Simulated scan of single mutants.
Amino acid sequence: MSKEKSQEEIDAEVAQFKKDLGIKENKQAEPDFHEDLNKYSSIKHVIGVISGKGGVGKSFVTGQLASMMVRAGYKVGILDADITGPSIPKMYGVHGPAYGDDRGSYPIEASDGTKIMSINLLLDDEEAPVIWRGPVIANAVKQFWTDIVWGDLDYLFVDMPPGTGDVPLTVFQSLPVDGVIIVTSPQDLVSLIVKKAYNMASMMNVPVFGIVENYSYMKCPHCGEKISVFGESQIDSVAQSLGLPVLGRLPIDPEYARKEDEGKCYEIQAPFEPITQRMLEALG
């Protein structure tokens, strides 16, 4: 039986996590251009979820990270910053229209308690395309921070569109992002794509907490053998070269797709590494 850790050991581990991740004790000590949060809201931590390319399941990973923290007893929200390709509402089975009053607009609460704001919750027709130019999209993301009454949250996860364009830049400059998690898949270009996302975050002085590899493998339904559908993973070597932890290797699983289609993504428990929750809790 393993020895239970003392409070001193736990505190030392948390301090080391903060040091390794570059978390500053006082983020306001340096000049910044952050937008003011809605005055009726209080958010302790903002976590961005990014990817260098589309199609890697970034929104799924965002939902799973949020669900993990909800199950751990925290108050959690998701800001869907993928304005032209929102998928968070569908995954959680929530629909608009969001309502508002003189304090601002309110997020929609999913069945598990996660508070969600997405452009789809503000449109009259969820299937209508959002044909906006970059500056308008960036301004909408800012308004999700300044005009939404989030209430009291421990964690706000920001699901960003893929790439290194207007929206990630806006989020990094306008929101007090504690750090980001990079999502990728096991393909030949993984090293280049991950490094693009990593370098953007570094240029914006935003810590990168680690990497999640989605579509990492699938299990044979008959023998349980892991099959590398998209080729052998390179995530360990890429993570090592950047000095980052691998936070999870998530499988291809038809049950995941079914739960998402049913709007019950919060019922999935994706196999993140044990370090992932401890790392987020180490933010304080």
Rank of each mutant, 00 (worst) to 15 (best):
V190L: 11
V141R: 03
Y92N: 07
T164V: 10
A197C: 05
T84V: 06
D82H: 06
L121C: 08
A201H: 03
V190I: 09
I83N: 04
T170A: 14
S111F: 14
D102F: 10
D154L: 02
K142F: 01
V190P: 00
I119W: 15
W132T: 07
S202E: 12
L123W: 11
G93H: 08
P97K: 15
V180H: 08
G165R: 06
D178K: 12
I182T: 03
Y92C: 04
M204W: 00
D178M: 08
V149Q: 09
P168M: 05
I193C: 10
I108S: 06
H95C: 06
A128S: 15
Q187I: 09
F172C: 00
G134W: 11
V206I: 15
I181Q: 02
A140D: 07
A140C: 10
M91V: 01
Q187K: 07
G134H: 11
R133F: 14
G96Y: 13
P107T: 01
D159T: 05
Y92E: 06
Y155L: 07
L175S: 02
D101W: 05
F144G: 12
V194F: 10
A197M: 03
D166V: 02
I108Q: 09
M204Y: 01
W132N: 07
V158P: 02
N120R: 03
F172Q: 04
T164R: 05
F144T: 01
L192V: 11
L169V: 06
D112E: 08
N205I: 03
G100V: 02
P129W: 15
S105T: 12
I131K: 12
I116P: 08
F172R: 00
V130N: 12
G134V: 12
T84Y: 14
V180E: 07
I83W: 12
G93N: 02
D188G: 01
M117K: 04
R103M: 13
P135I: 10
S87E: 13
G93Y: 13
P97G: 08
I137S: 01
L122A: 07
Y106N: 03
E126K: 13
L121Y: 02
T146M: 09
V149L: 08
D80A: 08
S118A: 08
L122P: 00
P107Q: 05
A110H: 07
R103C: 05
H95V: 12
F172S: 03
L189V: 08
G165A: 14
V177S: 14
Q143H: 13
G179W: 08
F172I: 00
Q143I: 06
Y92L: 15
G165N: 09
N139S: 15
G96Q: 09
M203R: 11
K115V: 04
V194N: 09
D147E: 15
K195M: 14
I193V: 14
M91K: 00
T114Y: 12
